[in-house]
C-alpha cells in the first residue's frame, strides 16, 4: 500500500514537472521490444509525441492475441499487432478493436536455410525436415505457401520446437529449414556466422503470399472517446515509422536508451533487414499509411483459408478505420 502510494506520488511528480497536462496514451506491443517495435520508442525519444502534447507509455505483450485482449479490455489504448489475428478474432467474436494504420504491408513469414544445404527455392523443400515454433501465426499460412509452390504439408516433415531452439537446430543439422519471421534475419545471421556458416532467407511474400501483416490497431473506446488524441497519435506514429527506416542507426540508439538490454547495433541491423516489409512495391503503388479495400479483401481471403473460416464470416473492411490517417 505504502509503496503504491509512493509510486503514485513519484509518478505524478514526474508527469507534472515534465509534461504539463499532456494526453496519456498506453501503447501495446505484441511482443518484447525489438527492431520491428522501434517506431514507438523513436517517437518518444525524438519528441514526436511530445510535440503533439502526448505522453506515451509502452507495455510489452506476449503474442498477437495477448495484445488484442489487452486493447479490447482497455489495459492499453493503441498498439501494434497482426491484422490477421484481428480478422480471425473479429470473425468469431465481437472484439472492440480496429485497424487504423498499416505497418507491414508484406507478410514477415519466411523459410531460413543454410547456404551449405544446397536448397535454393521453396520448391527444393519437398521431402525435407522443417522446424517451426508451436504458436506462430506462420503455421496457419504454411499450407497456403506450399500450395502456391505445388505441394502440400504431407510432402514435408514438420517438427515443432521452442522459438529459441530453431536456429541452433538448423545450424547443427537437426532441421533442413526453419520457419520464422524475417525480423529475426539479423539475429540468425549473427548466430550462424559465429560458427562460420551462412543463412539464406526465403520470404513467403516472394512466392505469392502477399498480405497486410503487423498494423497499428486501436480500441474502439479510445477512438470514440478521444478521437483528437488518437488522430495526433497516429500522425506522430507515422512520422516515427518514416524516421525509423530512414535512420536505422538513430532508431537503434533510441531503443537502447529506453531498453538498455538491447544492443543498438542489432536493432539497426534488424530494422535494415525488414525495411522492405514496410516500404515496398505495395506502398509505392498505394502510398504509405492507408488500407486499400482490395488488399484488405485479399488479406482476409488468406486469413480465412488459413484459419478454416467461411469467406462471409467477416466483412473485412468493417475492421478498418481509415478516418485517422494523417493528412
Amino acid at each position: 500500500m505504502k509503496t503504491k502510494l509512493k509510486f503514485t506520488l513519484f509518478a505524478s511528480l514526474i508527469t507534472s514537472t515534465s509534461v504539463m497536462a499532456a494526453d496519456k496514451v498506453t501503447f501495446q506491443l505484441d511482443w518484447l521490444p525489438g527492431g520491428d517495435k522501434a517506431p514507438v520508442y523513436v517517437g518518444i525519444q525524438q519528441g514526436f509525441f511530445e510535440a503533439l502534447d502526448l505522453d506515451v507509455s509502452i507495455a510489452s505483450g506476449r503474442g498477437s492475441t495477448d495484445a488484442l485482449t489487452k486493447m479490447a479490455t482497455g489495459q492499453s489504448d493503441i498498439g501494434s499487432s497482426d491484422i490477421g489475428a484481428l480478422m480471425a478474432a473479429r470473425a468469431q467474436d465481437d472484439v472492440p478493436v480496429v485497424a487504423v494504420l498499416p505497418y507491414f504491408t508484406q507478410a514477415p513469414h519466411a523459410f531460413f536455410v543454410l547456404k551449405s544445404s544446397g536448397i535454393k527455392s521453396i520448391k527444393d523443400l519437398k521431402g525435407k525436415k522443417i522446424a517451426t515454433s508451436p504458436f506462430t501465426s506462420s503455421n496457419a499460412f504454411l499450407p497456403l505457401v506450399l500450395k502456391e509452390n505445388g505441394f502440400s504439408e504431407e510432402d514435408i516433415q514438420l517438427v515443432k520446437s521452442d522459438p529459441g531452439a530453431l536456429a541452433p537446430m538448423m545450424i547443427t543439422g537437426n532441421a533442413d529449414a526453419i520457419i520464422a519471421w524475417v525480423t529475426n534475419t539479423a539475429l540468425f545471421k549473427n548466430q550462424a556466422s559465429s560458427v562460420g556458416k551462412e543463412v539464406i532467407e526465403m520470404p513467403w511474400s516472394d512466392s505469392g503470399l502477399s498480405l497486410y501483416s503487423s498494423s497499428l490497431l486501436a480500441s474502439e473506446k479510445f477512438l470514440t472517446e478521444r478521437p483528437d488524441v488518437a488522430k495526433r497519435f497516429v500522425k506522430a506514429y507515422a512520422k516515427a515509422i518514416q524516421f525509423t527506416y530512414e535512420f536505422p542507426d538513430k532508431a537503434g540508439a533510441d531503443l537502447h536508451k529506453m531498453v538498455p538490454e538491447v544492443d543498438a547495433g542489432i536493432v539497426s541491423a534488424q530494422i535494415k533487414s525488414i525495411t522492405n516489409l514496410v516500404f515496398n512495391d505495395v506502398t509505392e503503388k498505394d502510398g504509405f499509411g492507408y488500407f486499400t479495400p482490395e488488399r484488405i479483401q485479399k488479406t482476409w481471403k488468406y486469413v480465412a483459408e488459413a484459419n478454416g473460416l467461411e469467406d462471409d464470416a467477416l466483412e473485412p473492411m468493417m475492421i478498418v478505420n481509415n478516418d485517422f490517417i494523417p493528412e
Binding site: 518484447l32 525489438g34 507495455a59 510489452s60 506476449r62 522459438p163 529459441g164 539475429l187 548466430q191
Partner: peptide, 24 residues
C-alpha cells in the same frame, strides 16, 4: 513476468532469449 511485465529477472531472461543472447 512471462505473462506481463516490463522489468524483472523473468522478463530479462525471456527478453535475452528472444534476442538469442543465451549467455545473458
Amino acid at each position: 513476468e512471462f505473462v506481463a511485465a516490463e522489468e524483472g529477472l523473468g522478463y530479462f531472461i525471456q527478453f535475452s532469449t528472444s534476442f538469442f543472447k543465451i549467455p545473458q
